[in-house]
Amino acid sequence: MTNITLTNLTKIYERTTVPAVANLNLEIKAGELVAFLGPSGCGKTTTLKMIAGLHSITSGEVLFNGESVNLVKPEKREVVMVYQNYLLFPYMSVEDNVGFGLKMRHMEKAEIKKRVDEMLNLVKLEGFGKRRPHELSGGQKQRIALARALVVRPKVLLLDEPLSNLDAHLRDEMRELILKIYKEFDVTIIFVTHDQEEAVQLADRIALMFDGKLQQFSPSQDFYERPATLRIASFFGNNNHIKGTKKGTVVSTAMGDFSVKDDIDVPDGKVCLVIRPESIQMGGAEENSFEADIDLSIYMGTYTRYRINMDGERWDVTGSSHFTEGFEEGKKATFSLPKEKIWLLSEE
């Protein structure tokens, strides 16, 4: 098991001045499944490649179990990267592809054959050994790429956008396979994605990056319930916020006063009140109720999305499709904010 520490990790590409990754500090526990999440160009893949040793480091350190690996060559790190476009060697059979890493470790042919067959079994592609990569479907290529990485029993597995090239139903299959691998092998897994849903569904913890900088590193739930900034909230699909002034457990806003939990670690003063679309309650309640015009209602099947308008302040609301009476487009309706769902950000 390997824990990974990044200290002040910085990458500035040649002929650029803005760092692709800036002063990244991160501690990944041994045997953890971590997602690097962020929009494209945020430095997540660069970070992954610096961990793998495939990109040089401008400054800072990568430590495995407390020891710097800055000078360790990529082939000696026991870190295997699986690329988004699979990169199966096209002129080799599936068998030779999967066995490549073992051959590089000078293992005997019979042993290689045995382990390759085991791996093909694990990814449910037994009998595909003699095929060529171009004869496989996208999902099969992905599974072979995983098998090729795992067969060498790496200490760290790095996955670059593992699900983004797959169809919806294959994604579920691949997600299950990754989780199965994660349970069966003693391996630390880091994967990169731009899709917050993918990150949430797979990872123990998410490292969110914008513009080469780490924004928040915490369990996925926190990104929904306690985002560190408005930008993070918005990245996770939450654009509902209003400015106000906090005094004790009451926040006064243009929409009225709202009472909040007493354990939010934000000082009195100017704050920003944040609430997720699915946390807003349809209908009034004992406290925190308000009236709003329904500008738009979109039936989405099991749920319905509303755009509500409170004197120019526009919020999104996601409600169950079972309770739509009185919430038709163009009507005025009452909503309420459950106290325990309100999150506050300090404006100072």
Partner: peptide
Amino acid sequence: YDPAFEEQARSLGAS
């Protein structure tokens, strides 16, 4: 030519 093939080989243990 995709140089990532070389990276992939390196990361699988090839010198």
